[in-house]
């Protein structure tokens, strides 16, 4: 659904955030991983809070995880989402241990279940921005 009429809020393409979404545009979900202690992290940070190292690389995620929690937004609290309600912003915990805010796409809000298995898909919402979203597996 890539089009110029997309009115929803978009991330600012700056610094590490730009790098994160740049990989998504290539169809890759990558998170930072500390080169020293191997800890994964999200959201992007300059430094490893576990060991203090500033050496890291973008490592490919398995793209698989489980539903950690969600809410069903029945009343949109931002005008850009007026036509979407009810929709379900969710938090997914990847197998690597990091969590990210996302949306579950193939599942009605009423069917959301904590710990349900999910896997990443990529939604190119504009020519510049691709958002990682998730679909429930094993349905």
């Amino acid at each position: 659904m890539s089009n110029s009429d997309y009115k929803k809020p978009l991330p600012a393409l700056e610094g590490l955030t730009q790098e994160f979404y740049g990989f998504c545009r290539e169809g890759e979900l990558r998170f930072q991983r500390c080169a020293s202690c191997q800890a994964w992290r999200h959201v992007p940070r300059e430094m490893c809070a576990q060991c203090g190292s500033m050496d890291w690389s973008w490592e490919a995620s398995s793209g698989r995880g489980k539903l950690f929690t969600w809410t069903v937004a029945a009343r949109p609290l931002h005008a850009a989402f007026a036509d979407d309600a009810p929709y379900a912003p969710a938090v997914v915990e990847l197998d690597e241990g990091v969590r990210l805010v996302t949306e579950i796409v193939n599942c009605k809000p009423v069917d959301l279940e904590i710990d349900a298995p999910v896997e990443v898909i990529f939604d190119a919402v504009t020519p510049e921005i691709t958002l990682p979203k998730f679909r429930r597996t094993g349905l």
Binding site: P11, V43, P76, L77, H78, F81, P89, T102, E103
Partner: peptide, 12 residues
């Protein structure tokens, strides 16, 4: 929030 919550409608 702007970069990682708002795009998914987690705005409030």
């Amino acid at each position: 929030a702007r970069d990682f919550y708002f795009p998914y409608g987690l705005t409030s």
